[in-house]
Every structure is written in C-alpha cells, then in structure tokens.
C-alpha cells in the first residue's frame, strides 16, 4: 500500500444531527480509508441510516464536520453535487425510477450528470448490468423484476457512475430470504475488487466475510468500532454483547 491509500477518504468529526428535539446523532467520529469495508450495525433507531445519509448530504448535519475525499460538506451546492458524484448509494427500498427500463435507469445519470453520449452510455450501462448478472433484463421495467433483481439494478446504477465510495443502507432488508444471497454475492464481488464500502446490514455472515471493521451504534452514538474478528470474538461493551446474542 502506498501513502495515498492510507489517507481516510471519509472523515466525520463530532457530527451531531437533530430532528426537532430528538438528537439522532451524538458526536459521531469515524474515519474510513480508501479500500476499507466497514459494516455498521445496531438496533433500529440507533442512527445508522442517518449517519450514512449525512455522508452524501441526503440529511444535513447540524454540527461537526464531514469530509469526503478532502471536500468538506457545506451548503454550497457545487460541492454537494461533486461529492454525490463520488459517492454511490443503495437504498433499502431500491428506489429505481419506475417509469424507466432497467438500462435507462442506469443511463439517466450517465447522460445528465456525466454528459456521456447516448451510445456510449448504453455500452457502459450494459457492462454494469452484466456485472450484476442481469443483462437479459435490460429492457424490463422495475415493476417487472423481482426484488433481488431490482436491487442488483440499483447497485449497477450506482456503480456505473464510477464512485469512489459505496454506501449501502440495509440493502437486503426488504428482500425475500431466497433473494438475499444473490444481492450479497454481488456486494462480496465488489468488496473483493477493492471498493470502499460502508454497509448497514444485519447479515452478520456477510459482515464476517467481508468487513475490515465493524461499527456498533446505539442511541445515536458509536458504541464500539473494532476489526471484524475482534468485534465478534471479544466485544467490549455490554450493549454490544447483548445485541450480538440476540442477532447471532
């Protein structure tokens, strides 16, 4: 590894976020290096989602600082759009554009944001659909695809923008059990190729396989952050132990 690989690509410093009177994030400090895979877990309502949504500013943090690839997230529109081009996001409920076919879902941002020519955008899109193993579904609409297929299209849509970092917000929670593995397989491939990833998931098998570090959150705080093996073998806090007992 050279020196640039050691530099954190995502830095959160003392980030706080309020929804009205409710404090969703309490002094979050987190650093993610290029190529690192971080799995975030914790009970629902612990602020996991809010935290990663702050990283591409779908939520605005109220205090503290967030840096993505050296750019601080402020209200400057130009910076936000630049950051969003670097950061891909996959949602729990897929959020594909229902009025566009699978391939057009991929091509829309290529054409509008990357200003790629149509023929070239189609080629790129097709390549990424092949990568998630569904080139044959290119001309179907999202409603004609299964949940697992939709989520794979959504992953391809984020990937074809060539992001530096991928955020996954419970990508398999809305899926039927038999479709979970096809999505996790795609994510594992991605991790093996060296993509920087932050993944919120309850799939502890996947976490054990793929993650470098595991973050455990509760009540808007990071309770524990440890290398994967250590996290499972030797959790420190009582809260983490209890959570692991329930989930494993």
């Amino acid at each position: 590894m050279n020196e640039s690989d050691q530099k954190p690509i995502i830095i959160l410093e003392d980030v706080c976020k309020f929804f009205g009177d409710f404090q969703a994030l309490r002094n979050i400090n987190l650093q993610v290096k290029k190529g690192e895979r971080v799995v975030v877990c914790g009970p629902s309502g612990s602020g996991k989602s809010t935290m990663i949504r702050c990283i591409n500013r779908l939520e605005e943090h109220d205090s503290g600082k967030i840096f993505v690839d050296g750019r601080e997230l402020t209200s400057a529109v130009k910076d936000i759009d630049a950051v969003r081009r670097e950061v891909g996001m996959v949602f729990q409920s897929f959020n594909l554009f229902p009025h566009l076919t699978a391939i057009n879902n991929l091509m829309l941002a290529l054409k509008l944001v990357r200003k790629t020519k149509k023929s070239e955008a189609r080629e790129i899109a097709m390549r990424f659909l092949e990568r998630v193993h569904i080139p044959e579904q290119a001309d179907k609409y999202p409603s004609q695809l299964s949940g697992g297929q939709q989520q794979r299209v959504a992953i391809a849509r984020a990937l074809c923008m060539n992001p530096e970092v991928m955020l996954f917000d419970e990508p398999t929670s809305a899926l039927d059990p038999e479709m979970i593995s096809e999505v996790l397989d795609v994510m594992t491939d991605l991790a093996n190729e060296g993509m920087t990833m932050i993944v919120i998931t309850h799939e502890m098998g996947f976490a054990r396989n793929v993650a470098d570090n595991i973050v455990f959150m509760d009540c808007g705080q990071i309770v524990e952050m440890k290398p994967t093996d250590e996290f499972f073998e030797n959790p420190e806090s009582e809260r983490t132990k209890l959570f692991l007992e329930q989930i494993l």
Partner: peptide, 22 residues
C-alpha cells in the same frame, strides 16, 4: 415516492434535472 427523488439526488442530478426527468 420521495425515495425516488432521493435516489436522483444521490446520483448527483441537479434540482432541475430531478424535476423534469424524475
């Protein structure tokens, strides 16, 4: 669906593009 609008924003589409294309 607000999720679809979020997806567009997350892909880096501007407000105007999100309005007319999504």
């Amino acid at each position: 669906d607000p999720g679809i609008v979020e997806a567009a924003r997350a892909l880096g589409l501007s407000n105007l593009h999100t309005f007319f294309y999504v």
